[in-house]
């Protein structure tokens, strides 16, 4: 599990990789929050393209980052969500406060 953060101008992208659960979410949260506090990006995009497993901790992670962005004044985009992860995000009503983008080539379902 890991996160790679790329910042260009006012846009920050956090590429998540591997499994997101309560155990792995803590380190990801810390890395993203540190970067957001440092750069105050206008847009934070969290990319779920390389996520192989996620439970509701991934939803909590997104909700928590929304709160962080409330302090720094940025917009949240959740991108490359698989169908099931999209469904879980919607259970929480996140589509009302963030932009949700589904994964284009859902390779997860082809496996």
């Amino acid at each position: 599990m890991g996160v790679k953060i790329v910042t260009s101008q006012q846009k920050m992208t956090a590429y998540l990789e591997g499994e997101i659960d309560h155990h792995t979410a803590a380190a990801i949260r810390e890395e993203i929050d540190n970067a957001v506090m440092l750069h105050s990006p206008q847009v934070l995009k969290i990319d779920f393209g390389a996520v192989t497993f996620m439970d509701s901790s991934g939803v909590g992670l997104a909700m928590g980052r929304y709160r962080t962005l409330l302090m720094t004044g940025g917009e949240l985009i959740l991108s490359n969500l698989s169908d099931r992860n999209y469904k879980m995000m919607k259970l929480s009503g996140l589509e009302k406060i963030a932009i949700l983008n589904k994964r284009e080539n859902a390779y997860e379902s082809k496996k």
Binding site: G60, G64, M88, S92
Partner: peptide, 10 residues
Amino acid sequence: GERAGLGFAV
């Protein structure tokens, strides 16, 4: 905070 409150719902 970091918990979505979705455990049972999921």
